[in-house]
Design a protein around this nucleic acid. Sequence first.
DNA 1: ACAAAAGTGTTTATGTTACACCCATGA
DNA 2: TCATGGGTGTAACATAAACACTTTTGT
Lengths: 266, 266
Amino acid sequence: MQGRDKDEGGERTGHEAYDNGEAYDRRAYEPFAVTVDLAVFTIRSGRLHILLVERGQSPYAGRWALPGGFLRPDESAERAARRELAEETGLADVAGLHLEQLRTYSEPDRDPRMRVVSVAFAALVPDAPQAHGGGDAARAAWLPYGTGAQGPGPLAFDHDRILADAHERIGGKLEYTCLATAFCPPRFTLGELRQVYEVVWGTDLDPANFRRKVLATPGFVEQIPGASRLTGGRGKPAALYRAGGAVWLHPPLLRPTPERPEGPRP
Amino acid sequence: MQGRDKDEGGERTGHEAYDNGEAYDRRAYEPFAVTVDLAVFTIRSGRLHILLVERGQSPYAGRWALPGGFLRPDESAERAARRELAEETGLADVAGLHLEQLRTYSEPDRDPRMRVVSVAFAALVPDAPQAHGGGDAARAAWLPYGTGAQGPGPLAFDHDRILADAHERIGGKLEYTCLATAFCPPRFTLGELRQVYEVVWGTDLDPANFRRKVLATPGFVEQIPGASRLTGGRGKPAALYRAGGAVWLHPPLLRPTPERPEGPRP
DNA sequence: ACAAAAGTGTTTATGTTACACCCATGA
DNA sequence: TCATGGGTGTAACATAAACACTTTTGT
């Protein structure tokens, strides 16, 4: 609902007629701080990594947290997220990166100081853009996903939950969309593409069957004629591909083990 | 991001070190109004219906809109949405209904009067709970989904977009979750369950194959021994089932036509 | 008797899985 | 020449689609 009922003080609009007879009181208009949080994934040396920043002040001083920031008055959450992504990664061409709204976290007690509603995003970055610049007091770093409880202890606020949700979303989307190419550089081998699935899902895939599956999906990848590259120094040079125009995978490429994550969050 | 950077005025925290050197100004803290919008679906007389309320005042006076309202200071968006759902539908046992966060809409100009960030939810109601009570100036009604541009003209604000997103989300989730039972009463026939798919997807399904598929998925439905019911007065009485404990469908029940909705929204 | 919907069976096509096997390269 | 990863082939298996057919009800 938009700001209806707010303009004329005390007026009972049609909407209130269905509000069990009680009109909105002033508290209903109390404002919130709105932020964005980013779960930025990349694949580095065969492992899934996540971009984190170290908090310099209370609460959760010294803890790692997801990067993010406040919405500015003239920008949408998507714009704010892309701006933060550019700032935190130091990447110049943020325009083409995959950025996807996850969900909004609004538990009243998620920030001990004030009421903050945060719109969370998941972002995929082809490769570690750089070791990450900046860096005096507050650091930012790519940490391996899932090291203990996110490396050095749990994340600040509810960011462990957000991160887990983001990982599950990405893993699920690999099944039925062409999202995997968003993790890859402009030109990639099918082995690299397969590694995306293996790293995110934490499973091994049959290279032969994976290859057939990908090539059988029109528009998933396009071969770059004549191009090839050595991968890892050993083995036969692999053909290079670029992302195709398709966005959906039909039929889907399901996780090997149908074990779905438990819980009431379908 | 939580309210970091807000507590001590003018202090530059570690986070700002990555903000291209510019500190947040006061505008960054400007508050927003936060609301929830609900896309409440049900199936009535073989058609998909959506719960709408008629706006009584400007802007968009006289237009239909999604029900919703402001977040109260002490409740999460989920709680606010469930509260609104109870108020708008008049249902008493809202606890078991399916309510799912869709996404958050935050375009700066989506409300002409003020800055409103809205968390949208999709809800599924087993049957038309009632013709809908209340009713003087502002009406609320179940309208068939997709009648022209939502029956009497386009919806208020960006609600057409929200509604389309909600419909697409529901349709997609039917493919790989057991969500369909949320549209059904506690005891239902497989024909009624199939109708959910047909109505939401707008396609016909083979009753025989659908039956096999559902029964082959453990935990999707459980037969109620001995019970049966006439459906529509004609035909053989159908066995009755209740929802099982499973939440995921493996393998998925894909839409007959792999035609996915166009657009850059995978 | 007929229409309608439930429910069963069967055939065909399609997709998936698990391998065996060859190819090209660096060490 | 050996290890390594790319790339091809193929048979066994599982799933999905199409459709014929029987059953049980109301009209």
